[in-house]
Nucleic acid binder design. Sequence first.
DNA 1: CGTCAGGTAAAAA
DNA 2: TTTTTACCTGAC
Length: 302
Amino acid sequence: MIINSPINLELTQLSGQTSQPPWKQVGDCFSDVVLVGGKPTLFNVRQSQDCLDFSFTGDITEKEAISTLNYIYDMDFDLSKFYKYLSNREELKDMSEFCNGLRLFLAANPFECVISSICSANNSIKRWTKSIADIREKWGDNHFDAYYTFPDKSVIQDLYEDDEEESLFSENPCGNNLKSCGVGYRAPYMKKACEIFTDEINLSDIPEMDYDEAFETILKVPGVGPKVADCILLYGFNFKEAFPSDVWIKRIISYLYFDGKDISVSKVRDFGMEEFGDYAGYVQLYMFHYARMSGLMDKLKK
DNA sequence: CGTCAGGTAAAAA
DNA sequence: TTTTTACCTGAC
């Protein structure tokens, strides 16, 4: 079946968005299990022309399958309108040609996005995605042979933190701890985050909030600073007005808009949200990948 | 072996 | 309020 909106699937999958790790890739096909209304469903998606071709296995209707994929790949977002917006601005006009068909890769599971985003802080894409994949395989539920859902917060909350704690309390230590997944000093953040989601913050309240309230709320979670909070709201909850600002976005914004002058990450965030409004999230996504692919990043590295 | 990677928390200015 | 410092880990 085809979803008739343009997308570059591989670019979208491999762009390092902190919603979840990329789906399993075999040839040109990407697959993963998603809980749709609690029902495990295996999705297979691939590029067909410039659109999305998919099939699925699971006890849901075709309509539910389409609506799930529409959400995850943000297929209702009007890319051509966005490209017009970019082309009308001198600083942004080159970006669309370097990232044509790049879309948001939204979280199938917002809780997983929170943990992924915490894991991504001061980390590489390769390492955080492997950590999250390891957590799924160790403590998630197995479906359709080789696929795993992300474990529930109650599971993560009860895990040992590291080898030392495990060998202290366990009769046969066997890597049943968070740090064995390479999350490093983020392990206690993850566990405390789960506690907070049990007795203080209800993640399902977030979509009802306005941006500032959602931001202040999610910022209370251990391991979540401003950059990670914006990522969680953008990739996990589809708040498109988020403008996650890290050192790279700072360098790029500084180069494009402030004549290379050094400005704080916090100012960059304010600037991006003010300047780009509801397009802020997409501009951030395109900006980062434009810089990577155009060579601007190498130029700014020194 | 030292440096670095898409920051955060805690301490200090 | 804004700046500095230590920090798991794996790759180079």
